[in-house]
Design a protein around this nucleic acid. Sequence first.
DNA 1: CATAGTGCTTGCACTTTGCAAGTATATATG
DNA 2: CATATATACTTGCAAAGTGCAAGCACTATG
Lengths: 168, 168
Amino acid sequence: MKQTARAAEDGLKLSAWLPYRLFLVAAQIARPLESFYSETFGLSQAGWRILAVIAERDAANASEIGRACALDPFAVSRGIGQLTELGFAVRRPGKTDRRFAAVSITRSGRAAFNRIAALGSAIEARLLARLSDGERATIDSALTRLEAESARIDAGGWRALLDDASAP
Amino acid sequence: MKQTARAAEDGLKLSAWLPYRLFLVAAQIARPLESFYSETFGLSQAGWRILAVIAERDAANASEIGRACALDPFAVSRGIGQLTELGFAVRRPGKTDRRFAAVSITRSGRAAFNRIAALGSAIEARLLARLSDGERATIDSALTRLEAESARIDAGGWRALLDDASAP
DNA sequence: CATAGTGCTTGCACTTTGCAAGTATATATG
DNA sequence: CATATATACTTGCAAAGTGCAAGCACTATG
């Protein structure tokens, strides 16, 4: 109870706390996109993320997908199930090791993806329009470091955070 | 199918899409914080957000809280219920209009808040340490505009987004 | 060729959410 | 002043989502 005193006293204002501000923007943007793909295609958030991942690869196994879009194996399995039911993806047993099923996008899956991606790009364009070129570059580079640091924070867990008030 | 052609063709790579990058950072940071306050105090995410809001006001009614932390009235009601059960908040009927109950934080609620805020500040400090002063300033100002623009996008809904490919 | 290990899936209990309907209070109207 | 309408939540319940133990299919290893 030494180095945390400042934070304990002045409080932390939610609306000025960087992580909350990032969350707010992300959440406000996710809402219209999500209502689009869920109303239009009956897709869940996990389903959409997996669709986006298999759209940029010819085939992927479940753990690759999980890594690429930050979903646990259960969610991936269920998401793939949803996509195959909708006819947006197919599972083929892997060639060499048949534990790894290769998931790939179908023609109609790609069509759906393109429509959602168009909306996603429209949203991104609206956001980027509010920023100067310099700001875009700064944010792009800063975000790369923030992604890395937040991954480390996540991996360490909260116990590590309270200890290392002394650590670098 | 003119202005959306680019997006439709080249795809939109999830890992390079600004909203997803913001979401990733926010999600990775939320995880350790959430496991801390849920393990330690049995608080839900909504509960924590409400606690943070009432920590910086002497009293608030449910709709104020909802506006301040982007929660719908149901979630607010349940969150307040949780906080009062935990002894972290009290509801008093409003003085003039008794439909508006005034919610305020208790002594032990503030104690809990301070401990969570300390962890939150530690996380923020780790993130900010990865950025230069200039970057912090840029991000602060850019984020203000992104918050406003994403609120507009959210309010408009997805239909508005597909039409106004021509609008400013 | 039994044993252990990996990658993924299923079932089931538990939690969270969304929404219709309800309560309590306040204001407006005949 | 009774009644209607509006506001500000609150509750109950069904639907959806999540977490986890156990299971299945397959491969690697002694």
